[in-house]
């Protein structure tokens, strides 16, 4: 794919070919997040369509940084909303959205792909990988992760932090 930041700039100028290239580059990522979080292919398609239509109608929402990381956050936030609307107990606490206007532009995000991330995650001890994946994809708070896994909350938090640090090292190491 061409430089995604350049494509976003072209989308702002209503360039449909640039928009199409963005879908080619990130359609699988957006749909994959939605499908994994919602476990429902029809709603995942709706969210995918809605995220890309937002890119087309409000490209100014992207304020710079890494385009893939930004799209991933926008998608995750929209899925959290769907999960909130589905929640059987509306009182059960859901995680708050992570701000998506501050996508960072970090070296480890520069050439990411799914295969690399999956193998980096696979290198983590399962007790670190599981709470990270639950926290990212399941729309639950760390309290809920602790409750479901029967592990003290303090331990869960430390494992998430240690796991993210290791994940960062694996991704940085493999980048060369």
């Amino acid at each position: 794919m061409q430089d995604a930041g350049r494509l976003m700039a072209d989308v702002r100028r209503r360039d449909a070919a640039a928009f199409e290239a963005l879908y080619d580059g990130f359609g699988r990522l957006v749909y994959g997040i939605a499908s994994r979080m919602l476990a429902d292919t029809a709603t995942a398609e709706d969210v995918t369509q809605s995220v890309f239509l937002t890119v087309w109608t409000r490209p100014e929402a992207f304020r710079g940084g890494n385009v893939g990381a930004w799209l991933a956050r926008v998608t995750r936030n929209r899925c959290l909303d769907v999960l909130r609307s589905r929640a059987a107990r509306p009182s059960a606490e859901m995680p708050v959205d992570v701000a998506d206007e501050t996508a960072l532009d970090d070296a480890i995000l520069a050439r990411l792909d799914g295969a690399r991330v999956r193998s980096a995650l696979a290198l983590l001890p399962v007790e670190q990988r599981e709470p990270i994946e639950m926290g990212f994809f399941d729309g639950v708070t760390h309290d809920e992760i602790a409750r479901r896994s029967g592990i003290p909350l303090g331990t869960i938090k430390t494992r998430i932090r240690t796991g993210l640090r290791r994940l960062r090292e694996h991704l940085a190491g493999g980048a060369a």
Partner: peptide, 9 residues
């Protein structure tokens, strides 16, 4: 960024 990368899995 490491957390953002998880999405790609």
């Amino acid at each position: 960024p490491a957390a953002d990368a998880v999405a790609y899995a």
